[in-house]
Write a protein that binds this DNA or RNA. Sequence first.
DNA 1: ATCAAGATTACCT
DNA 2: GGTAATCTTGATA
Length: 201
Amino acid sequence: MNTPQKLLQEFYNRKVNTVAKALLGKIFVRKDQSLLLSGKIVEVEAYNWQHDEASHSFNGKTKRNEVMFGEAGHLYVYFTYGMHFCANVVTGKVGFGSAVLIRAIEPIDGINIMTLNRLGKETINKKELINLCNGPAKICQAFGINCSSNGINLQADEIFIIDSPEIKPSKIISTTRIGIKKSIDLPWRYYIKDNPFVSKK
DNA sequence: ATCAAGATTACCT
DNA sequence: GGTAATCTTGATA
């Protein structure tokens, strides 16, 4: 049996749409001493620097988005709507400001902890399980991710992504992105076909 | 200094 | 389907 392999720098250091599709099916992991939380990435969105007005990086580097302009393979976490965090994986060359938003995860390990983080209780029914990580802010709440994780290196042991067999192109659906008002026509949202943990059809 | 918008979610009808 | 919650950031003056 092969040892699970952490994704390396070279995986992230490619074009954002390539990385976005490649991230589908991979295992997102948060480790903190005895704490182990993980789940399969089933939905993502790509945000680019050029020709993408919806991207935080479109108007250039600021204090908020500087991680996006840094090295690939780091985590960009931002706070929005006065109450939510969203997590992104930085991709491509330094200075290009591109990242992949993690939009939905199928929970695997630590479901009891995620349930506690999200719902304030330990038991969960089937419907609540489906709704546990099917949205970018829900993932951060379930995994306990906040701005203190902004900029961390995914090669380290706190938060990282483990390799897993590639999803076949025929199983990847590409649609327009959700919740944006600019560049709404770009088909840069990708999700795994027929997976019940995807946020929206 | 002021202000509007926001890569969302939960709860209402 | 509609909207309140809630506050940081970035743009403009």
